Computed example of a mutant assay.
Amino acid sequence: MRMKSDTVSQSVFFDLAKRPFGVFTEVMGRIFLAGLIAVLTFSAPAFANSKYAGIVVDAKTGKVLYGEDADQLRYPASLTKMMTLYLTFEALEAGRISKSTPVPFSKKASAEPPSKLGVRAGRSITVEQAILSLVTRSANDAATALGELLGGSEQRFARMMTNKARALGMTRTTYRNAHGLPNSEQRTTARDQARLGIALRQHFPQYYDYFSTRSFRFGKQTIGNHNRLLGNVRGVDGIKTGYTRASGFNLVTSAQLDDRH
Rank of each mutant, 00 (worst) to 15 (best):
L79T: 07
Y52T: 15
L87V: 15
G231D: 07
N140W: 02
S184C: 02
P205T: 06
Q186S: 07
G29I: 05
A38Y: 13
G62H: 04
K107Q: 11
F32Q: 02
L33K: 15
N250Y: 07
T188E: 08
F13H: 10
G152E: 04
K116I: 11
I131L: 07
V127N: 06
R217S: 15
F32V: 09
L134I: 07
R172I: 04
F42H: 15
T162P: 11
G22I: 11
D237C: 10
T41D: 02
I198R: 14
V119P: 06
G62S: 00
R176F: 01
T222Q: 11
H226F: 07
A109Y: 08
R201C: 10
A59E: 02
G197R: 11
S138N: 00
V64M: 06
T25C: 10
F13K: 06
F157D: 10
G238E: 10
G224P: 04
A142M: 08
A246D: 12
S254T: 09
E185C: 14
A165Q: 10
T144H: 11
G197A: 12
A142S: 12
S43N: 13
T174H: 14
I131N: 14
R120N: 08
V236L: 05
L150N: 08
A70Q: 15
S133N: 05
P113K: 08
D209K: 14
Y175H: 03
T213Y: 05
G147R: 00
Q256S: 11
L16R: 12
S124N: 01
R260H: 08
A199L: 07
G248E: 04
S9K: 11
F21P: 00
R191C: 01
T126G: 04
T188N: 13
M1R: 02
S5Q: 13
Y208N: 02
I239K: 03
A94M: 11
K240L: 00
Q206W: 01
M160Q: 12
G29M: 02
Q72S: 14
L40D: 06
T222G: 06
S50C: 12
S184P: 05
A109R: 04
I55K: 09
S115C: 08
M161L: 08
D15W: 05
K220P: 00
V103Y: 03
V233H: 03
A70R: 12
I31R: 11
Q202N: 15
Q186E: 08
S78E: 00
D58K: 02
G22M: 10
K107S: 06
S78M: 03
Q155C: 11
M3I: 13
P113T: 01
R120A: 13
Q10T: 15
